[in-house]
Structure formats: structure tokens, C-alpha cells
Design a binder for these strands. Structure first.
Lengths: 152, 152
DNA sequence: TTCTAAATAGGTAATATTCTTAACTAGGAA
DNA sequence: TTCCTAGTTAAGAATATTACCTATTTAGAA
């Protein structure tokens, strides 16, 4: 599941380009941290990234890893699995439904779609396990955050 | 967005039935906690549930709320938004892809599907905000957890 | 090279979640 | 009903996770 050498290179290029374009400093730490996530096939958490990066940069701090990861997230260079930072949130709606998640404020809206409910699961997935539910997650800026942004 | 009275009643019935079937005790606390989540349109976190339930049961503890919510989750009566308990996880894969999430161990597997990439966003959602990405989340038991279960 | 705003390390603080244990109670048995 | 007890709870302590503070360092501009 590791990305190919070319894939990793491509991600690194996108990273440096995006950083330059937005005028954000390209520090050694940031490069190491992004590189670590980019070349990992899985979905590491901050602690894992920290441990791996520290092997090469013994002084890096966990706080820097967190700060950098969330910054990368804000810039769209990495994504988080599930909603944004914060607490676990629960949902008692047992009937099939789907979510729109605001990538900025974490607001979650429910919606229904017959089409989404009835998606056919790819063969590839059956090797991973038994699928019980299907849920579509749409991510983007909610209208409230849009208004805020346009004011600035 | 609040569920209708009938909808709440239906959820409560399902709750008591499932609890009885599994031989789990129907305590006052559990009923209040489930009821609180069931009648909330949104997606409350444990702290919110705790604050609301405490208004009626002044002695309930936060720990009980957590324990109960995770128990309800295990029984399939509520779901969590995003992956299971634990840390935030990051993903540097910028190209569109989708996830299979194990509801037991939290294992996440990636997969690709042209069909899923090109889903058409329902009109209803455009009122919530601007959709940037579409991601399908399939949930179920991964093969490893299946094997573990069948052993028991 | 020098300068300066931005970023970092390391310690500390704040949150979020879970564990421990003694006391309590729901629900079955008598 | 009353008694019994395994399962459940409250409360506080312990962990885990994430964010803040400040002196120091550094990337990138001039």
C-alpha cells in the first residue's frame, strides 16, 4: 500500500509549490513532517509521525508536529479522517443518511439521498471485510464560513 | 432538524428491544442518555449529552455517559461521526479515494472507485455550503476482526 | 551577510477520555 | 414481596491528547 517513488515525489513537489505560493516558510521540520506522511501508505496519527520524524530530527517537538499537520490540513495538503479536530460526536439516526462536513468549523449537516444509499460496493473492498453501512461524506466550506471569508 | 415525536418513539422502542434481546440492563441512566441523543437533531459530543442529562439526573457522571455512548455504539444503536475512538489520523493522498473503516478495531483501508468519485451532489446540500470533495465511507467488520469473533 | 518576522523547542497547561474501587441497584429467585 | 448478586454506577484519580507560552533559532528578503 506504500505509494510509489514517483507518487511521493509528486506530493513533495505539490507541497513545496503550495508553500511557496502562500508565502509560508519552508522549514526543515515542515519538510520532514510532510514527507513522513506523504510516504506512508497508511493513516498515521500525530504521535506516529512524531516518533518517526524524531529518528532523523531528534529535537523536534510533538507540538510542532501537531501545528504542522493542522497547517497542512488547512492548506489542503493532507486531510484528516472523519470530522475536524475536537471531540467524538454521536448520532442516533439509524436510518441511512449522509453528511456534509465543513472543513473549517467542523459543522455537520445531514441529508438523504436514495442514490447514495444504494451504492454498489466494489469487489476490491470485500477483501478488506464485510460492509455493513455506506455513508457519503461531502466536505467543503459551509455557507456561514463562506460569508466570514468574503468579509476578510 | 429535530426528529419528529414518532421518530423519537421509534428509536426508543428499538433501544429497549435491543437492550432486552442482548440481556443488558435497562438502567435509568442508559434510558436518559439514549433518549437525549435520540431526540437531538444534531451530533452531540459526550460533554453535551452529559450537561443535558444532568439537568434531570443531577448525579450522573461523565464517565457513565462515555461508557454508555460507546456501549450504544457497539450495539449499533448510535454511530460516531468518522472513525472510532482514538486520535485524529492524517492522510496525504491528494487524489480522490475512499475508505473502508472497521467499526471494531478502527482499521482503515483505502480503495479507488471511478463511480464513487463522480457522484452527483444533491441539490439539498448546496444550501449547506460549497462541496469540495466527495468521499465514501464504508463501515463494517474487517476480516481480521471477523476471524477473532468467530473464534469466541 | 545582516536583519526581522515567523517558527521552533521544551516546559507547562488545558482538555478529553478512561480506569479504579467501593457502593449501589435492576431484575431474577425464593 | 424480600433477598441476592452480577452488573452498573459515582467520584476521584490517572492517562492521553492537544494547545499555549516564551526564549531562542532560522528562512528568506534586502
Amino acid at each position: 500500500m506504500e505509494p510509489s517513488r514517483e507518487e511521493v515525489q509528486e506530493r513533495m513537489d505539490r507541497f513545496t509549490q503550495t508553500m511557496r505560493d502562500s508565502g509560508t516558510r519552508l522549514t526543515h521540520q515542515r519538510m520532514e513532517i510532510f514527507c513522513e506522511v506523504a510516504r506512508t501508505g497508511g493513516h498515521p496519527d500525530a504521535e506516529m509521525v512524531f516518533r518517526r520524524v524524531r529518528k532523523r530530527m531528534t529535537t523536534v517537538s510533538l507540538d510542532t508536529v501537531y501545528r504542522t499537520l493542522w497547517m497542512l490540513n488547512d492548506m489542503g495538503l493532507v486531510t484528516t479522517l472523519g470530522p475536524q479536530r475536537g471531540r467524538v460526536r454521536f448520532d442516533a439516526n439509524a436510518s441511512p443518511h449522509h453528511h456534509f462536513v465543513c472543513t473549517k468549523c467542523g459543522m455537520v449537516g445531514d441529508f438523504n439521498s436514495r442514490e447514495f444509499d444504494d451504492l454498489e460496493v466494489p469487489e476490491e473492498v470485500s477483501r478488506m471485510g464485510d460492509v455493513a453501512t455506506t455513508q457519503v461524506q461531502l466536505r467543503g466550506l459551509c455557507s456561514r464560513c463562506q460569508k466570514k471569508e468574503s468579509k476578510e
